[in-house]
Simulated assay, not measured.
Amino acid sequence: MMGHFMDIKETAEYLNVSVSWLYKNAQRSGLVIYRFGPGPNSKIRFRVSEVESWVKQQQVMSG
């Protein structure tokens, strides 16, 4: 079964960042973006499981 996806607004809310931050920094930060459809009207989606994995990788160990 294919993983569930979130749109850009849902992903921004999940990560507590702005939509504009996601547009500017998602790929640079290592988040995988999926585009559905051609051209400027394509839909941007993020796979939930990959976003959750990315969050875990951002943990900073203190010590």
Rank of each mutant, 00 (worst) to 15 (best):
G3C: 06
E50Q: 15
P40T: 11
Q27R: 13
S29Y: 01
P38C: 09
P40N: 13
Y14M: 07
V17W: 00
D7F: 10
S18M: 03
E10R: 09
E52T: 07
Y14L: 12
W21K: 07
S53M: 11
R28N: 11
K24Y: 04
Y14H: 15
G39H: 07
R45T: 10
R47D: 08
G37S: 10
F5W: 05
A12P: 02
S62W: 14
I44E: 07
K43I: 14
S53L: 08
N41Y: 10
W54Q: 03
L22A: 01
P38E: 14
K9M: 02
N25E: 06
Y34C: 11
F5H: 05
R45E: 11
G63I: 06
W54A: 04
K24F: 01
R47W: 08
S42V: 02
G37E: 07
E13R: 14
G3E: 12
I8D: 01
S49R: 14
S29V: 04
F5L: 11
E50T: 03
A26W: 00
P38A: 15
Y23R: 13
Y23K: 09
L15C: 04
F36K: 14
G30D: 06
Y34L: 08
A12I: 02
Y34M: 05
M1L: 07
V19N: 09
E13S: 10
H4I: 04
Y14N: 11
Y14A: 06
V55Q: 15
R35P: 00
S62I: 08
K9C: 04
Q58W: 09
K56T: 06
Y34A: 10
R45M: 09
Q59P: 00
Q58M: 13
K24L: 03
Q57I: 01
E50G: 00
P38V: 12
L15K: 04
F46R: 03
I8S: 05
W21N: 00
G3S: 11
M2E: 12
L31A: 03
Q58Y: 09
L15V: 01
Y23A: 00
N16K: 15
R45F: 10
N41H: 12
S49E: 14
K24I: 01
I44P: 00
T11P: 01
A26M: 11
K43P: 00
K24Q: 12
Q58E: 07
R28D: 05
V48S: 10
P40S: 11
